[in-house]
């Protein structure tokens, strides 16, 4: 069964300067266990699309189903973990407390909570930092904590909006590697927004290339790369070919624009 199905999806913001067509005629199907990356120039509607899936934004045209229901029903069923560009940890909660937040809201038992907190913090390599406060951690560690927070409950869809955008390349590589392992272990469906071509190619099973005004999909690339991906796969010819195609897609979007 497909997890996310969008057809002819459109979203127009009514602003004081007139309508802004953030999304137009978006058609996309995401299967269970897919790792889908969205890439495209700034303002092409990547965030908006992700927010539509999470029912934080309501499309003005077309249909969108998540797990066979409307996006808002899926939200109420707690189908998503959402990782924002900024870690957005609560400064008054420890790392463990931050990860526990969704669990408290969803009413997990005490024992279950501590078991899960421990498990996901292990998963993101933050064991031992339970009692630290966010400001005591580096930006990369905070971002990992926010990923742990999104993993703590049983959402089978992970929505990530440029989660590593603010981090340096080395940390980013490391987190990408970890994210792939994590995806492999948890079998979640991941929708991932990025500006980086290598990141998109390295992580994804499918790459969705978008272009702006109005925001639309210009290309969907199925990755031929195997599921097992060491970092040096980025030097392989297949990798470079995919990267090339993404770049062409991005360029085509721009040409159309001019």
């Amino acid at each position: 069964m497909s997890v996310i199905e969008a057809s002819d999806l459109g979203l127009t913001f009514q602003t004081n300067d007139g309508p802004v067509h953030a999304l137009s005629k978006i058609g996309l199907t995401v299967e269970k266990g897919d790792f889908v990356s969205f890439i495209g120039p700034s303002g092409c509607g990547k965030t908006t699309f992700l927010r539509c899936i999470a029912a934080l934004e309501t499309p003005t045209e077309g249909t969108l189903t998540v797990n066979g229901m409307t996006a808002d029903e899926a939200r109420r069923n707690r189908a998503y973990g959402y990782v924002f560009q900024a870690a957005g940890l609560y400064p008054w909660r420890t790392i463990a407390g931050n990860v526990r937040l969704p669990l408290e809201i969803m009413g997990y038992s005490k024992a279950e909570m501590s078991e899960r907190v421990k498990r996901v913090l292990d998963l993101v390599d933050l064991a031992g930092f339970e009692k630290k406060y966010p400001w005591q951690l580096s930006g990369g560690m905070q971002q990992r904590a926010s990923i742990a927070r999104a993993l703590a409950f049983d959402a089978d869809i992970l929505l990530m909006d440029e989660p590593f955008g603010a981090l340096d390349e080395i940390v980013r590589d490391h987190l990408n590697e970890q994210l792939l392992k994590l995806w492999d272990r948890t079998e979640k469906t991941i929708a991932f927004v990025t500006h980086s071509i290598p990141e998109a190619v390295y992580l994804s099973t499918r790459i969705v290339v978008m272009s702006p005004r109005p925001g639309r999909i210009t290309d969907v690339i199925e990755s031929p790369l195997p599921k097992e991906r060491p970092l040096d796969i980025r030097d392989s010819t297949e990798f470079l070919e995919v990267a090339h195609r993404v770049r062409e897609g991005l360029r085509a979007g721009h040409a159309y624009d001019e």
Binding site: R75, R76, G88, L101, I105
Partner: peptide, 9 residues
């Protein structure tokens, strides 16, 4: 932060 609360329903 408010959106985060919303995603948790």
């Amino acid at each position: 932060q408010l959106d985060l609360m919303r995603t948790y329903n």
